[in-house]
């Protein structure tokens, strides 16, 4: 099945292991990912400081227009912040004809146009609803053998419309993790915010948010936290040592993408699953099959 892929800026840098593992999973499942040509940043999540609301909408309209030039497939946006920006534009385009006209007036400046109709989907949506748990189970050759995982969606992953899962109590990632043979531990911070785009510049305010997430996962007995958002992965992982220092804690919790666990379970090796790119190494808990 063909999909457009909108990688977004993060997946080309801090979240490169997300992109690599999404591609590894797509390969194992026979999904064909076609990158949107010459895509631009979606604006998330600090766009408003330098840009206006209409300018941010224009950024997302351009990506939709670029995709439409290439065809009519659904767009997969693995990054939750990109997803939320793009899906809002796609919805508003259908629901607000005046805004749609304004967008086309703006797009015309770059000789582009968008007529609507494209669907924006999160990678969890496609894995759960298009691929399905049965096929995922069938593809598992290296089950995760009861690996204890905290399922951390992050705040934006199923929002704002709750198109494929609950905005408050999502379950799609839990079900996928269980299908891979993992044990999903009790964890009440699944949709709590990590500080997102302001974590880095407002660390004193946001460190307790990350501390609470790491703490709840630890209390639940998790060996790893699984996420589906590059900003969550980044804030929870690369600043973990900073958070420890600020809060006088000693967390040493690997933060992996659900697609990394999936690739591993599908028989890809540690490197193909891009698990060698995790800074808090999950090696000891994942015990890769040689």
């Amino acid at each position: 099945m063909d999909y457009f892929l909108y990688p977004g800026c993060s997946l080309e840098a801090g979240g490169s292991h997300y992109l690599a593992s999404v591609e590894a999973v797509a390969d194992a499942l026979g999904l064909n990912l076609i990158e949107i040509e010459d895509w631009n940043c979606c604006g998330a999540s600090l766009h408003y400081i330098g840009g206006t609301e209409l300018q941010t909408k224009a950024l997302n309209a351009r990506n939709l227009a670029m995709a439409q030039k290439q065809g009519g497939h659904d767009i997969i946006a693995p990054c939750s912040s990109c997803y939320i920006q793009m899906i809002q534009m796609a919805h508003e385009f259908e629901e607000e004809p005046e805004l749609a006209a304004e967008m086309n007036e703006i797009l015309a400046e770059a000789d582009l146009s968008y007529s609507g109709g494209l669907k924006v989907r999160h990678v969890l949506d496609v894995l759960f609803n298009d691929v399905g748990l049965d096929e995922i189970k069938e593809k598992v050759v290296n089950p995760l053998n009861g690996l204890k995982v905290a399922s951390y969606y992050g705040c934006q992953t199923t929002r704002p419309y709750g198109e494929y899962d609950s905005v408050e109590s999502p379950h799609t990632m839990d079900d996928i993790l269980e299908a891979l043979g993992a044990e999903v531990v009790p964890f009440d911070k699944g949709t709590k915010c990590c500080g997102s785009g302001i974590f880095f510049t407002e660390m004193e305010n946001c460190a307790p948010l990350v501390g609470a997430i790491l703490g709840a996962a630890t209390d639940g007995g998790a060996e790893v936290i699984s996420t589906a958002c590059p900003m969550c992965q980044m804030n929870l992982e690369i600043y973990q040592s900073r958070v420890n220092k600020m809060l006088h804690t000693e967390y040493d919790m690997p933060i992996v993408f659900v697609t990394q666990l999936m690739a591993l379970a599908f028989g890809k090796d540690f490197k193909q699953s891009a698990l060698d790119r995790n800074i808090v190494s999950p090696k000891s808990v994942l015990q890769p099959s040689a």
């Binding site: 209409l54 351009r62 703006i106």
Partner: peptide, 13 residues
């Protein structure tokens, strides 16, 4: 083209 779009969008904000 993107710059032109952003300039236009700003003027319409």
């Amino acid at each position: 083209g993107l710059k032109k779009m952003l300039d236009k969008a700003e003027a319409m904000s």
